[in-house]
Every structure is written in C-alpha cells, then in structure tokens.
Design a protein around this nucleic acid. Structure first.
Lengths: 148, 148
DNA sequence: TTGCATCCTGTACCCCGGTACAGGCTTACC
DNA sequence: GGTAAGCCTGTACCGGGGTACAGGATGCAA
C-alpha cells in the first residue's frame, strides 16, 4: 500500500484549498505532519483530502479553527473518554447560531423601521428623535455584546 | 457659548467608548478634528457624543466603519446631491442581513440533522457516509461564498 | 509652584483565517 | 544530466476594529 501518496499540491487541489493553507493547518494542529520523502517533501495519505473536507465542512457550520482542532482531537483519542465531544459541541454551536439569527432579526426589524420612517440623515434624526434607530446603548440594557 | 466643551476623556466616557477609539475614528474620517486648546488638547462640542452614538448604532446595524464614514459624509453635504444615501444604503444592507439570516438558517438545519443523526466522530462519518454533513464543497454548487 | 491627572503623538500589537514572497532545494521528465 | 515545475522554510502582510504603550507636554487645583 505504497502507491497512493500525494504531494502537497495534489492534496490541496483535490480538497480545493490553497497549498499554503495546508502548512497553516499543520501549524494550527488541525492536521498531523505526514511522512516525508528523502528530500523532505511531504507525502500525504489519501485520507488527508477527506480530513480537509471535514475541516471545511465544520467551518461552514460556524466552528472556528480552534474548535475544529478540538473536535478532531476529541474524535481521535475518544477511547473511552467521558467527553463525547461532537454531540455536545454541535448542540452548543446550534444555540450560538440561533442566537446570531435572533440578533440579525432584531437588526432586520430595525432597518425596516428606519426605511419606513424615511429618515435621510443620521445626525439630524439623532437630534430630533424622529428616527427609530437605537442610538442608546443596546449593549448595556439588553443582551451582552461581548458574547459575539 | 463657551462653557460646554468636552475633553477627549469626557466624550469617550459619555459615549461609552475608549478614548483611543476617538483618535482612531479621526484617522478613519468618521469624526472631524475638533478645535484645540492652546496647548493642543482637543475640545469637543457636546454633539460629538451624539455622533459617536450614531456611529455605534450604525455598526450594530451591520455597517462597517467605511460604510458609516460614507453615510456620515453623505448626510453632511447632501445639499441637492442626487445621491440620497441613507435610504438606498439601508435597503441594500437589509438585503445583506436577510441573506446572512438565510445562510445561518441553512447552517442551523444542518447542525440539527447532525445532532439527530447522532454521529460522534467527524472523520468516521465522512468515511462511512452515515452523516448528513455537507462535506462536499457547498461553495461551488450553491450560492457564492466570496460575497460575505 | 508643585504635583498629579489627563492628554498628546507615533508606533506596535491583538484576533482570525489565511495568503504572499524570497531564496534555496528536490523531483520528474526528456 | 539538464531543466522546469514543484516543494521547502521563514517571515511578512491582508482586512476589520480597535487597544496598548512609551515618552513627553498640558491642565487644573491646592
């Protein structure tokens, strides 16, 4: 089973990422360093392409690269750990995503109101209070802004 | 009318921002440079606090600082320009926000499916295709990812 | 006048997810 | 064995929105 090793560029192209990104993921601990040729060139097993697709999928689901690194790690040595990573983390991420959707919907409402009100100069509106824009600090009265 | 000038720290505190942020906004063209004391200290009119609140409100609505700078500028010399900035831009931003909501809802669905399916190791799932996660490139078949 | 808080400028740094470049070595093919 | 494409390393840079720090000048009150 020595016929299928892939070089950096081949892996990158197959997974649809930049070759530099591979090195970056090694640095970030998302990919293990593969074996090397005598001359020092990396030689990847074909599964690496799958690993990259997994990483990209997780990113699309809103996980940061640090979180992805955790997930991969958790998947790796999940040999009887009580952790059971993926489920719990997916649920947590789901909550985050739902919060973000709610936030954006608030923003949407506000924009709609602003358009309806037809105001045309922010400073003038702020002065005359004709405008429904939330000039007061939302971040103190409502939910915290430092969360996202 | 010379009793109400505010110093940098006073403005910053009244508006709930860091004093350094004021300098940053000057650099970005979001605030005009105010008058100075003999010694070179900035002396702001009280409206500056309102201006800062407006900027923060616009940010909360999803405008970037560059966009806010445009909006402020447009509001300022809107003396017969055909531009009529705020309305058009608010509508455009509304579209963006709605797109983001739609994207997040797709992500939400996918996460829900992943949780339902109960898979626990990304790599294993990717290999066995038991898992409903979109490991293939969504970004090519579906909507473009370079938009946001 | 002295002392301390505040302010000034310029510059560097932070996070995040990469991307680019320089200068040199390896591999693959003819 | 020559040559071009590809790969190696280290380092610097991008954008977005700030924050921090150094070293010096001012402002204000006692």
């Amino acid at each position: 089973m020595t016929g299928a090793w892939l070089r950096t560029g081949e892996v990158a192209e197959a997974a649809g990422v930049n070759a530099q990104t591979l090195r970056y993921y090694h640095r970030r601990g998302l990919l293990r360093e593969p074996r090397r040729s005598n001359g020092g060139h990396r030689l990847y097993p074909p599964e690496t392409v799958t690993a990259l697709r997994v990483i990209k999928a997780a990113q699309r689901l809103g996980f940061t690269l640090d979180e992805v690194a955790d997930l991969v790690e958790a998947g790796g040595h999940r040999h009887g750990r009580p952790d059971r990573g993926l489920q719990a983390r997916a649920v947590a991420k789901l909550t985050e995503v739902e919060q973000k959707i709610a936030d954006l919907q608030t923003i949407r409402e506000t924009l709609l109101q602003a358009v309806d009100a037809g105001c045309d100069d922010l400073m003038a509106c702020a002065a005359s209070s004709c405008c429904p824009l939330p000039f007061a600090e939302l971040t103190e009265g409502g939910r915290r802004a430092d969360v996202d």
